[in-house]
Design a protein around this nucleic acid. Structure first.
Length: 113
DNA sequence: CCCTTGACTTAGA
DNA sequence: GTCTAAGCCAAGG
């Protein structure tokens, strides 16, 4: 399991209608401070089945340049992500990875009985 | 090993 | 709001 796979798994955790920043993904994947490498991972191969459009820049900026950026915005709007000007409304749509840990804990509590 | 490349981020000006 | 400069770090040449 390499760096790319961990980043990939983390991106898959972001639910529909939410987004996360490169930095947040890096940290959640266990590689704090490697935001640029997250971008590198998304740029590479194997994007099929990956919700890459849910990863945005700091403050909800779209970092993908050119037409691809517009494409990303459309894909997000279709998922229900709100925009405020040229940025994602992070207050509403930023995904908090800590919610995953809470979910896991409550799931375990249920299965334990 | 050194150098370059980024879908990055932060801090200043 | 914009722009630059510097820090950042996995890959690839």
């Amino acid at each position: 399991v390499g760096y790319f796979d961990n980043i990939r798994r983390t991106v898959l955790l972001i639910p529909r209608g939410k987004v996360a920043t490169y930095g947040a993904v890096a940290q959640a994947a266990g590689y704090p401070g490697t935001a640029r490498q997250v971008a590198w991972a998304l740029r590479g191969r194997g994007l099929e089945g990956l919700p890459w459009q849910r990863v945005v820049g700091h403050g909800g900026r779209i970092s993908l340049p050119g037409e691809a950026g517009l494409h990303q915005r459309l894909r997000l709007e279709v998922e229900g992500v709100l925009f405020a000007g040229s940025r994602v409304n992070m207050k509403e749509c930023a995904f908090d990875f800590r919610a995953i840990r809470r979910k896991r804990r409550s799931a375990r509590r249920v299965s334990q009985k």
